[in-house]
Design a protein around this nucleic acid. Structure first.
Length: 274
DNA sequence: GAGCCTCGAGATCT
DNA sequence: CTCGAGGCTC
């Protein structure tokens, strides 16, 4: 039920910057409409450096506030242009602490794509959705150039999230931040995982019977993408026999060899764990 | 029967 | 927030 305002009644204003507040339809909370609101800027910075995001140790609530107040940082990209000497001049900051912070910032340049997406602070994009986006897109560029339709075709992503993403990448401020992150050397592409580090590395799979979720070819592709291999015959080298509906003679052979088996549900579970 | 709305469950985000 | 179920309209 929408509140009706009396003629002279004012909408509540942001307690920090005094800007007009908005209340998205169906929601209870009011949000400050000013993206440049100091409180919002600080929250975005804190979120960016937080553990689940870029994980920059040494910068938290306190230092974030100081960096903003001193004008050393105006947005998250500025972090990567900080100099140790600038930090060392701050209150309660010596050369040692300053160096530690700079090192932490540099280390964060290699974070996995999912974390970078999460760190950007796009509305409705939490750790989970960021993870999903990182499996669908190879880079921030690819994500930023995608369409509302493509996004909506992804399970768990509906109109609200799709719009939020599209709008975010349309904003000039955000494009600029991404540009400077790239120029500073922050990796905005999917990490290249070494073959031997893939989750199914060294495992050989054989499929028997009919799978519901996908064709043999698709199943094989998924296995390969995770570093595993496939074969058409069960042997002592076979790690798992995937048993679909109406299994063939491979099942008997697997039983004779004592090969481990997975039903389709267990196989899907294995893929989900990555 | 396609299109649109509401509603509730279950998952996710703030 | 997303998504599917069920009810309504045309």
């Amino acid at each position: 039920m929408e509140k009706i305002l009396d003629k002279d009644e004012k909408w509540p204003a942001c307690p920090v910057c005094g800007a007009e507040v908005v209340k998205p339809e169906g929601e209870i909370m009011y949000y400050c409409s000013n993206a440049a609101c100091p409180a919002q800027v600080q929250q975005r910075l804190e979120h960016f450096v937080s553990r689940g995001a870029m994980d920059i140790r040494g910068i938290g609530e306190s230092l974030s506030a100081i960096l903003l107040a001193e004008g050393l940082v105006k947005d998250v990209a500025d972090l990567y242009y900080l100099k140790a000497e600038q930090l060392a001049q701050l209150e309660k900051m010596g050369d040692k602490s300053a160096d530690n912070v700079i090192t932490a910032i540099n280390n964060s340049k290699e974070r996995p794509l999912a974390r970078v997406i999460f760190a950007l602070g796009i509305r409705h994009i939490g750790a989970e959705t960021a993870e999903i986006l990182a499996t669908e897109f190879h880079s921030i560029d690819e994500l930023s150039n995608t369409s509302r339709e493509k996004l909506m075709s992804i399970p768990t992503i509906g109109p609200k999230i799709a719009d939020s993403i599209v709008t975010f990448f349309q904003q000039e401020v955000n494009r600029n931040i991404i540009k400077r992150l790239r120029e500073a050397g922050v990796r905005l592409e999917k990490e290249v995982v070494k073959a031997e580090e893939l989750p199914l590395a060294g495992m050989e799979f054989v499929i028997t019977g009919h799978l519901e979720a996908f064709t043999r070819q698709e199943a094989g592709a998924r296995i390969k993408a995770l570093g595993g291999s496939t074969s058409s015959n069960v042997s002592r080298k076979t790690s798992y026999l995937i048993v679909g509906a109406d299994p063939g003679s491979k099942l008997a052979r697997a039983q004779a060899l004592g090969t481990k088996q997975l039903n389709e549900e267990q196989f899907l579970e294995l893929l989900r764990q990555k």
